[in-house]
C-alpha cells in the first residue's frame, strides 16, 4: 500500500493544483499501474478546493474508470473535504 500524507505537501489548506497534479502523476498513477492500493491521508488538512481534488483524482477516474475507487482510499477527511471529494467523484462518474 502506498500511503500519501498530503498535509506535508499542501499545508492545512489544500489548494495548490500543481502539487495535486504532481502527486497524481508521480505517485497515484504509477501506484495504480503496479496494482497497488493507494491511501490518500488528509490528516491535518482543514480545507481543500474543488480544483485541488479535481487535479488530484479526476484523471485517475477518467483513465481507469470507477473501478479505480476500489484501489483508492481517503483517510482522515473532515466533513467539508469529504463533501468536496464526493462532488468530484460523482461529477466524474456522471460526465
Amino acid at each position: 500500500m502506498i500511503d500519501i500524507k498530503l498535509m506535508g505537501l499542501t499545508g492545512s489548506f489544500a489548494e495548490n493544483k500543481d502539487l495535486a497534479r504532481e502527486v497524481r502523476l508521480n505517485t497515484i498513477i504509477p501506484g495504480l499501474e503496479k496494482k497497488e492500493e493507494i491511501l490518500l491521508d488528509f490528516e491535518g488538512i482543514e480545507g481543500a478546493t474543488q480544483s485541488f481534488i479535481h487535479a488530484l483524482i479526476s484523471d485517475v477516474l477518467r483513465k481507469y474508470g470507477p473501478g479505480a475507487l476500489d484501489k483508492l482510499s481517503f483517510k482522515n477527511c473532515n466533513e467539508n473535504v469529504r463533501k468536496i471529494i464526493t462532488i468530484v467523484v460523482d461529477y466524474m462518474q456522471e460526465s
Binding site: 497534479r21 474543488q50 479535481h54 487535479a55 484523471d59 460526465s95
Partner: peptide, 23 residues
C-alpha cells in the same frame, strides 16, 4: 458548472473542471 475554456468535453481536463467561478 462544467464549462472551461480548455475543452468542450464534459468533465473538463485533468487540470480544469470549469467549476471554480460557479462555486
Amino acid at each position: 458548472p462544467g464549462v472551461t475554456g480548455t475543452t468542450q468535453r464534459i468533465g473538463g481536463t485533468d487540470y480544469n473542471a470549469g467549476a471554480g467561478l460557479f462555486f
